[in-house]
Design a protein around this nucleic acid. Structure first.
Lengths: 265, 265
DNA sequence: ATGAATCGCGCATAAACGTGCATAAACAAG
DNA sequence: CTTGTTTATGCACGTTTATGCGCGATTCAT
């Protein structure tokens, strides 16, 4: 049994927090985690449902607070691959650096995987990334203020660039929308793309994580050519020709660990 | 029996210190540790609970962190009461208004309860509040940028006030730290308090939600006198004298719905 | 359609709780 | 030293709370 949950009250509070954070919960998982029967968990969920915190479903409960908007849907797309890319990206970050994390679901995964006491200075335009990092004592968090773009989940307007000028960015992780080996990076939101271009100019080194589904896709606004990015972080199932092409053009290419589930034994 | 606890007073002090340090305590563990019956421990905990040091739960007591503690612990304190206060506060907000939500766990509860399509413009210095509102299509979200204060969970430095000047605030919900009927509102963080003072000056109307545990408490930095706040939102179990006093001083006092569980049928 | 998993409900049980009362030690005053 | 008072404590008893289990009903997946 977890130490923080010796009391029924604390157990319920833990579940409540999880649901309020948008995490769906399974009855049998919770029962195992807290060392009680599923009945006890079900009673908790019944009560939390009456509070309006969650909606009970067969097998557990779903958070009621978060809407299923454009952002959350992206967060649920291939989370495992994003997590593996982010784990690889973490190797790039050194203590003492100032790192910009652009608003992106893959960068959010990166933020969530950051150790508690990594001595870095994070600058971000994403409220979700900032929220994910608040509790880490070893991480300094700076957020760019202003109007939050509902599609992007962060700030991307022109003034954000001015605010960015306050910081000296060692390393920048761009949020990618679309990538094609000949066209380069592109985005769907004009303001967002303008912001990303400015970001690329200001940062001393740049990196981007690309899930395989984004390879060979297009978007209306160009961000930069393929050579405009210093480091690409790709899944191992990315095409060999693409990897060779990027390497040949002088870009660094890092591969994430392969999916253990897809491994042939 | 522990040496430091031969006397009842010392035993109680030991428990008090433990709770103030944020450690949850179990009745039967304490009984065994100090060599007394659980009744004696329960009496201690009752007393400490009356002091406002802890919250009694089935099996023992949980530390009742003062507003000086870290953010997450505050989020777990009496969530039901905060939720009821927030539900009452929601009545104050009208469509089309520009509302500032100060960094506070009660205001976070307010944000979470906001309807999807309430046509309001929210300005906040809290990344958690901004994150909670991202997916609501009818709510415009603006966040004050800069360095995020780990204790407060938002931005409170001097430049935040400059950024605030960009907005015309119709209504402001202050995050309260401590309140005493004669002293007024006070806070634990100097920067935070300076920010709150500026906020009060800029907003056309002001409100604050106060959980019962905060009534009659003190903090080092004064924010304003009791009459400096336009509307108080209190739990129905707040003292009648306090309510009359505030009403008599010209403040509006709203009461949240009572706890349905505590109702006599 | 059929089997497995999950659910809701009622009941039993054990632990924790509150209250009232008696006891004993500590303490102050005569 | 005695007496009365306060304080802390333990115990008994009835109540509340949290939990687990059994059973039939429901839901899900194949």
């Amino acid at each position: 049994m977890r130490d923080s949950s010796r009391f029924p009250t604390q157990r319920k509070q833990t579940i409540r927090n999880r649901l309020l954070a948008g995490v769906p919960v399974l009855s049998n998982d919770l029962a195992a985690e807290f060392g009680v029967s599923e009945d006890a968990i079900r009673r908790d969920l019944r009560s939390l449902s009456a509070e309006g915190v969650c909606e009970r479903v067969y097998g557990g409960a779903l958070p009621l607070s978060t809407a299923s908007g454009p952002l959350t849907s992206r967060l649920n797309d291939s989370p495992a691959e994003k997590s593996r890319l982010a784990a690889r990206a973490l190797d790039l970050i050194c203590a003492g650096e100032t790192v910009f994390l652009d608003s992106s679901s893959t960068n959010l995964s990166l933020a969530r995987q950051m150790p508690q006491v990594l001595g870095v200075n994070i600058v971000t335009n994403s409220v979700l990334i900032a929220a994910a990092l608040i509790e880490r004592p070893g991480i300094e968090v700076n957020i760019l203020g202003g109007r939050v773009n509902h599609h992007v989940g962060g700030r991307v307007d022109a003034k954000a660039l001015d605010a960015l000028a306050e910081y000296s960015i060692d390393r920048c992780f761009l949020g990618a929308c679309a990538f094609d080996p000949s066209e380069g990076l592109a985005g769907f939101d004009r303001d967002d793309v303008i912001f990303k271009r400015g970001l690329l100019e200001m940062a001393r080194s740049t990196a981007v994580m690309l899930t395989t589904e984004k390879l060979g896709t297009f978007a209306p606004y160009r961000i930069c050519k393929p050579t405009g990015i210093g480091t690409y972080i790709l899944s191992p199932d990315a095409g060999q020709t693409l990897r060779d092409g990027l390497s040949g053009a002088g870009c660094r290419v890092l591969l994430a660990e392969p999916d253990p589930l897809k491994e042939p034994i």
